[in-house]
């Protein structure tokens, strides 16, 4: 219990630091920035406290907002993702989720991939919808969501398997 708390706190700080220092400065093609900091929400223990996740996600988003001058956009997107995470689990893993045996950091199966995909798409869609809430930018929003999703998804998977804790 205690060690998972420490792992999570560490992940919170490290992911935020990497996001602010490196990934916020990528500006691929001038407007695409990946947001792999949401890995914190994705990797949060399945059987961990839900209220804890909600509060942690809120602060995660809030710090991001401070750094990017965006009001409460990241906070809203993160809280939404955190709240719907169990639903996505149920959708992606089906019955096995009920027994809480899901491990995300394991071999990349279609279930795991679909879970990460849905999580990233949800977060980015909420994020960009709130960030540019003007109807004449609708195609722009969809394009940005699509491109950033691909980028973030790739980075998330790469990071997960790069720092995957070695088995036993």
């Amino acid at each position: 219990m205690n060690s998972t708390f420490i792992t999570n706190s560490l992940r919170f700080v490290v992911l935020l630091a990497i996001q602010v220092v490196i990934f916020n400065n990528i500006d691929f093609l001038g407007f695409i920035n990946p947001y792999p900091y949401i890995l914190f929400i994705i990797l949060y223990p399945v059987n961990g406290s839900k209220a804890g996740l909600l509060v942690a996600s809120f602060f995660l988003g809030l710090v991001m907002d401070m750094f990017s001058n965006s009001g409460g956009v990241h906070a809203a997107a993160c809280v939404t993702l955190a709240y719907f995470r169990p639903t996505f689990f149920k959708f992606s893993f089906g019955v096995s989720y009920e027994y809480q045996t899901v491990k995300i950091t394991d071999k990349l199966t279609p279930e795991r991939f679909s879970f990460i995909l849905i999580a990233v798409v949800t977060h980015h869609l909420v994020l960009y919808l709130l960030e540019i809430f003007r109807f004449n930018f609708i195609w722009d929003i969809l394009l940005r969501t699509l491109l950033s999703t691909i980028f973030t998804l790739l980075l998330c998977i790469i990071i997960i398997y790069l720092i995957k804790p070695s088995k036993r």
Binding site: A75, T80, L130
Partner: peptide, 11 residues
């Protein structure tokens, strides 16, 4: 929490 973040956004 969503309410807080949305109000920050609107603000």
């Amino acid at each position: 929490l969503l309410g807080i973040s949305l109000s920050l956004t609107i603000q």
